[in-house]
Nucleic acid binder design. Structure first.
Lengths: 142, 142
DNA sequence: GGTGAAAACTAGTCGGC
DNA sequence: GCCGACTAGTTTTCACC
């Protein structure tokens, strides 16, 4: 079923789109020596097979007052807490990224809040199912 | 200097673009009760003041064989290692995200590699400037 | 799988409100 | 600050190779 082949040109196109998704197919075509239509066909292929999942904008949370970013290691306190924690992750706007991990803790997540007091309030909620370890981001290098 | 006001409509537009940046200004306008041109003007404003930093694609690393994702806490071993580490972060394709943190360790980063052996090779490189603690992602929940 | 030309649509610019 | 009309550029859809 999944015998669709991805060649080096496809990867070049993907890379160009990751850098700037607003590039036109024509412009991309000049970089990879193809016409705009051929680029369009390959982009559609990448979408169909799920390599490209969607288009989005890179935005700056700090400009919207979301100045505090923190990395949290989560230690769930009981087996039953798992489902409640997952529901919490889904409903929380503060959690921008969350992983089930092996290693230290049960989950790891990255959160965004407007202020230290908002962070405090967030951790208060989290305490209902879990213990945690927090690191604050001083500078996002990448 | 920065007295540009961002209202609720701007935030709605931003949210719609984050979900799908390929929506046309016209379509967005129907959601927020504006014409396409007015949406275009607001989007340009958001770009000019730096809230929108650029356009990109969401893509699936697993479909390209980047199956292993790991979260690494970095403990630099000397003061002089900082600059070398930063250069390493810039040049490494495996590192997809990196933060200078306060709390545990000096840096925190998320990496993507194709296989456990590639992870091992990566950590070998890292050992030249730093000690580390690794957690593997089992399931990215968010 | 790629190209070339026409059709449909989109974003940017203008004057006007 | 927003709207309507126009222009330029873009994506899409063909038939053809």
């Amino acid at each position: 079923m999944n015998d669709v082949t991805i060649d080096a040109v496809d990867l070049d196109i993907l890379q160009l789109l990751i850098e700037d998704a607003n590039r036109s197919h024509k412009e991309i075509g000049q970089s990879v020596h193809l016409t705009g239509q051929a680029v369009g066909a390959r982009v559609r292929k990448l979408q169909d097979i799920g390599v490209i999942e969607g288009y989005t904008v890179r935005w700056n949370p700090e400009k919207l007052g979301q100045a505090v970013q923190a990395l949290v290691t989560v230690f769930l306190t009981s087996h039953t807490a798992h489902q409640r924690f997952r529901a919490f992750v889904d409903s929380s706007d503060e959690i921008v990224e969350a992983h089930r991990v092996s290693g230290e803790g049960c989950y790891w997540m990255r959160i965004r809040v407007g202020s230290p007091s908002a962070l405090s309030a967030f951790l208060e909620q989290l305490l209902e199912f879990a213990n945690y370890k927090v690191s604050l981001t001083i500078d996002q290098v990448k």
